[in-house]
C-alpha cells in the first residue's frame, strides 16, 4: 500500500540504469567513464560511434517498443476486461507487420520512409477495430483469442505470399525479423519515424485511462456511471493501434511482453487498469532493454532475436496466467 507512490519512480530509475547498462555491455565491454566520455562526444571516434550509432539507438528502440506494447497491453486488458489481451495474442502485431512488410517490399518505402510506420499503424488499427467489434458481440475470451490466432495466422500467410511475389529482393531473415521482432541495427532515423506514432498512441491511451477503471463494472454499469462507451472503445482502439503500429514498424512483432508486464504490475496497483497503465509501459520497456542486453551477451554464433527471448519468457507466462484464470472461474461456478 504505502510503497505504491514509489512504483513509477522506481521503474523510471531502473529503466535509466538498464539503458546505461546497455551502453556499457556488448561484444566489447566499456567502462562507465569511457561511455560517459563518448556520450559527451569527448572520446575517440570509435567509442563515439559505438555508443551513439549502435548501442544507444538500439537500447532506446527496445525501450520505446516496450513502452508501446506494455501500455497497449494494459489498455486492451482494461477494455476487454481480460488479463490475456495483448497486441501479440490478439493478432494486432502480426497485422501491423503485414502492413509494414507490404510498404517495405513493394517500393512504398522509396516514396516516403513515413509510409512504413503508416502502413504498420493501418494494419494495427484494422486489427484493433476488428477485435473491439468482436468484443461487443461476445463476452467470451476464448472467442477473442481465437480471432487473434486467426488474424495472426492470416497475417503470417499473407506476409509470406507478399514476400514471395515482392519485386524487391528480400531474405528469409528479413521475414523472420518482422515475425519475431528485433532491434538489432536500429538507428536514430528508425526511432524518429516510429516515435511520433508511439507517443500519440500512448497519449491517447493515457487520456482514456479513467474509463478503463469504470469498465471494471462491466459495460452496462460503466455506461450507468457516466462512461461514454463508444468514445472509450474508440480511444483504446486508436491508442493501441497507433502505439503497436509504431512499435512494430520499429522492431517487428514482439509478443507477450504486453501480457507479462501488466500482470506483474496489477497486484501492486490494486488491480486498477488506469493506474496500471504507466507502470506497465515502463516495466515492459525495462524488460525489453534487459532482454536485448541478454541477446547481445549470449555467446551464440548468430545473435538471437529479441522477440525469441520475449516469447521464451512470455509464452510460458501466458499459459500460466490462462491456467490461473481457469481455476478462478471454476471456483466461481
Amino acid at each position: 500500500m504505502s510503497l505504491r507512490p514509489l512504483l513509477i519512480p522506481a521503474l523510471l530509475l531502473a529503466s535509466l540504469i538498464a539503458l546505461f547498462g546497455a551502453l556499457l555491455l556488448g561484444s566489447t565491454p566499456m567502462e562507465a567513464s569511457r561511455v560517459l566520455a563518448a556520450l559527451a562526444g569527448m572520446a575517440d571516434a570509435t567509442d563515439v560511434t559505438v555508443v551513439w550509432q549502435v548501442r544507444l539507438p538500439r537500447a532506446l528502440a527496445a525501450f520505446a517498443v516496450g513502452l508501446a506494447l506494455g501500455g497497449s497491453g494494459a489498455a486492451l486488458q482494461g477494455l476487454l476486461r481480460n488479463p490475456l489481451a495483448e497486441p501479440g495474442v490478439l493478432g494486432v502485431s502480426a497485422s501491423a507487420s503485414l502492413g509494414a512488410t507490404f510498404a517495405l517490399y513493394y517500393g512504398f518505402f522509396s516514396v516516403s520512409a513515413w509510409l512504413v510506420p503508416v502502413a504498420a499503424v493501418a494494419g494495427a488499427l484494422l486489427a484493433t477495430m476488428l477485435i473491439a467489434a468482436a468484443a461487443m458481440r461476445t463476452s467470451s475470451v476464448v472467442t477473442l483469442i481465437l480471432i487473434g490466432v486467426g488474424l495472426s495466422s492470416f497475417a503470417g500467410a499473407a506476409m509470406s505470399l507478399l514476400m514471395n511475389l515482392a519485386p524487391n529482393p528480400f531474405s528469409l531473415s528479413d521475414m523472420i525479423n518482422w515475425m519475431l521482432g528485433s532491434v538489432a541495427n536500429r538507428g536514430f532515423p528508425d526511432i524518429v519515424f516510429a516515435a511520433p506514432f508511439i507517443a500519440a498512441g500512448l497519449t491517447i491511451l493515457y487520456a482514456g485511462r479513467r474509463g478503463l477503471t469504470a469498465l471494471t463494472l462491466g459495460d452496462e454499469a460503466a455506461a450507468g456511471i457516466g462512461l461514454d462507451l463508444r468514445r472509450q472503445r474508440l480511444l483504446v482502439v486508436a491508442g493501441a493501434g497507433l502505439a503497436t503500429g509504431g512499435a512494430v514498424a520499429l522492431a517487428g512483432a514482439i509478443g507477450f511482453v504486453g501480457i507479462v508486464a501488466p500482470h506483474i504490475v496489477r497486484p501492486l496497483v490494486d488491480h486498477d487498469p488506469a493506474r496500471s497503465l504507466i507502470p506497465s509501459a515502463l516495466l515492459a520497456g525495462l524488460i525489453l532493454v534487459l532482454a536485448d542486453i541478454g541477446v547481445r551477451l549470449l555467446p551464440t554464433e548468430f545473435e538471437l532475436k529479441l522477440g525469441v527471448v520475449a516469447a521464451l519468457i512470455g509464452a510460458p507466462a501466458f499459459v500460466w496466467i490462462a491456467m490461473q484464470r481457469r481455476t478462478i472461474s471454476a471456483e466461481q461456478g
Partner: peptide
Amino acid sequence: SYLPQRRPLAWPSPVRDV
C-alpha cells in the same frame, strides 16, 4: 444512478475502489 441486473467485476479490486 443505475444498478444493472448483471453486475460483473472484472478485477479483484478493493471494496473501497468499487
